[in-house]
Amino acid sequence: MVKENKDKYLSDPDNELMKRIGSGEIAAFKPLVEKYQRMVMATIYRYTGSSHDVEDLAQEIFFKVFKAAKRYTPQAKFSTWLYRIVANHCFNYRRSQKRDAIVTSLDHSFPGREDEPSLQLAGPKEKQPENQVQQQELETALRRAISELPDRQRMAIVLYRFEGLSYKEITKVLGCSLSSVESLLFRAMTNLKEKLKKLDFT
């Protein structure tokens, strides 16, 4: 494994922006929000499975980022640090939701976009779902299955499958070891497999 050089993170242009924001240049924050808002909202949406509070949560996260700018010292890529904040915020949100005993409603999901080609990552052994389920139904089932995973498994699979983070980046976001990430991802996938099996999608 390559030894990490912390100085290299200083050259990350977004870390540079954070430095300027920290020294009081509020205007420098707008491009940062513009650059990352989609990533933040997509992660929240994938994680919660509902569009309900996506905007509010994203706003809170960016507000947190702004307040942290003064004390920010880059120890990783800016995006990795941001994912960490997103993950923690999502975990807290889940906890508060459990406290309020609100069942996440999938009825508020974003409408499926049938006009858009879905992500095709077909491997050679891919089978089509036997009973040609509607894309819409499949999406709902997938979102529900994901939203039923335990918090950390769910975040790990969202980061890996949808956000394209590496194992190493996920260790930094979740603050755990490489073997924990391997295990989280494997368990997340087998859980999803079982859930989807019950629904007859596999």
Binding site: V33, M41, E55, F63, G112, P129, T202
Partner: peptide, 29 residues
């Protein structure tokens, strides 16, 4: 089995139509 699940996950569409929240964030700040 897991490959099938992995590929199914790939059929969740990429969500492109999130609103722009940058102005809202700056207003709040």
């Amino acid at each position: 089995e897991l490959r099938l699940t992995w590929n199914l996950l790939g059929r969740l569409p990429i969500d492109k139509d999130f609103p722009d929240i940058s102005n809202g964030v700056l207003e709040r700040i």
